[in-house]
């Protein structure tokens, strides 16, 4: 409908204080203020939200999926990197 497509934004939501922002999706908006507003309307309708981040999609530097084998595969066989040998005390809570 619009002549030139509006920029794309990535949306991150923090459900509660103390948790990290999580990527929830993307949307189109003319500028940052409208992106925040759209994020509120599109992504926070059903749950509690503590804060929203919006980031221009073209500001994100991404790894190439084709590099998957080089970047990530070798870690699979190094089980000593997985902290499964420790018992985490209950008092620690979220880790």
């Amino acid at each position: 409908m619009s002549e030139s497509p509006m920029p794309l934004w990535e949306v991150f939501i923090r459900p509660r204080n103390g948790l990290a922002h999580r990527h929830v999706g993307s949307l189109h908006a003319a500028d940052a203020a409208m992106a925040l507003q759209n994020a509120r309307d599109v992504y926070t309708r059903r749950g509690e939200t503590f804060s929203i981040w919006v980031v221009p999609s073209n500001a994100i530097v991404a790894s190439d999926p084709a590099d998957k084998d080089i970047l990530f595969e070798p870690t699979g066989s190094k089980i000593y990197r997985h902290p499964t040998f420790y018992e985490v005390p209950d008092e620690v809570g979220h880790m």
Binding site: M1, L27, V42, R45
Partner: peptide, 9 residues
């Protein structure tokens, strides 16, 4: 609405 975002809004 003109866009999906505004439709929901």
């Amino acid at each position: 609405a003109p866009t999906l975002e505004e439709d929901i809004a």
